[in-house]
């Protein structure tokens, strides 16, 4: 690749008890690119995201950010690096409005008092900069939003903090066609702004549309880390289901080597 990765995991292993879930995983996130993380159910995608997010520790392996090896001990350390995660269940408060949700836990204040002017303006700016035009008002309660709009708010919340990397765990899984469209456009725009974006998706159409790179996990191992332009749909499906495709993929069959 022409650019240096913004974030790199090298040789990461992760076990839960004696279930060895991630095997020597190398994973890179590049600025300005969408990296699709694909793999069958149970391949370890969510586990990998949680390792990146600092929710799970690593058994071994390096966490390299901006070319430097860093120690991360929890989600807060990772957030401080500028890495934000949009979880599949979104975690929004239905009883709060969009602005309140976007700033939740990190409210700006003037002394004791919440600085609503600053928060509402910044929320509006952020949504505007993401070209979000489907939301009626930023003071609308989140309960009144559609699935796609909620996803949008969750993503906007993640980029509000000058984050440099955003990881999205299956953001379109529950959405209809039009809403999926909106979210994919948004994902693309984030990358175009220079952020490193990680997209977990089972939908090959989505992956091929927005991703610059594809990292395929197979039973906790990286089967391939390739540019989207170098592979086709059926190759990726083979990588997901069998761990290899022609010259790509894991040479020995790990199915026998693992659990």
């Amino acid at each position: 690749m022409s650019t240096e990765p913004l974030l790199q995991l090298r040789g990461v292993n992760k076990s839960f008890g004696n279930a060895h879930v991630l095997h020597d995983v190398d994973f890179s996130v590049y600025p300005g690119q969408v990296t699709a993380l694909v793999g069958d159910n149970g391949a370890g995608k969510s586990t990998l995201v949680k390792v990146v997010a600092g929710i799970y520790g690593r058994d071994n392996g390096d966490y390299i950010y901006d070319g430097k090896q860093v120690e991360v001990h929890g989600p807060r350390d990772v957030a401080e690096l500028g890495v934000e995660v949009v979880y599949q269940d979104l975690a929004l408060c239905d009883n709060l409005d969009i602005v309140e949700n976007m700033f939740l836990g990190r409210e700006t204040r003037k002394g004791l008092v919440l600085d609503e002017t600053e928060m509402e303006s910044r929320a509006r700016e952020t949504l505007a900069s993401l070209s979000v035009r489907t939301v009626k008002s930023v003071r609308q309660s989140v309960a009144s939003l559609s699935g796609g709009q909620r996803q949008t708010v969750a993503i906007a919340k993640a980029v509000l903090w000058n984050s440099r990397i955003v990881l999205l765990d299956e953001p379109t899984a529950a959405l209809g066609v039009a809403q999926t469209r909106q979210v994919l456009d948004l994902v693309r725009r984030l990358a175009d702004r220079g952020l490193g974006v990680v997209l977990i998706s089972h939908n090959m159409g989505d992956v091929f549309e927005v991703a610059d790179r594809i990292t395929a996990l197979y039973l906790g191992r990286v089967a391939a880390d390739v540019a989207t332009s170098d592979v086709n749909n059926s190759q990726v499906v083979e990588l997901i289901t069998a761990g290899r495709s022609g010259s790509l993929g894991i040479s020995d069959n790990p199915a026998t080597a693992t659990v």
Binding site: S2, T3, L6, Y30, P31, G32, Q33, G82, R124, L127, A128, S129, L130, S131, V132, R133, V135, K136, S137, V138, V159, N162, S163, R164, L184, D185, R188, R189, A191, D192, R193, G194, L195, E209, V210, D212
Partner: peptide, 29 residues
């Protein structure tokens, strides 16, 4: 946001339309 775009890949639609005014049209009152 803090890094400059490096290898922008324009999506079929929308990606190049970074009109900042779009959201400004929401209801203020």
């Amino acid at each position: 946001m803090s890094t400059t775009p490096t290898t922008p890949r324009t999506s079929p639609e929308g990606g190049d339309k970074m009109a900042t005014g779009d959201f400004a049209g929401d209801n203020r009152s």
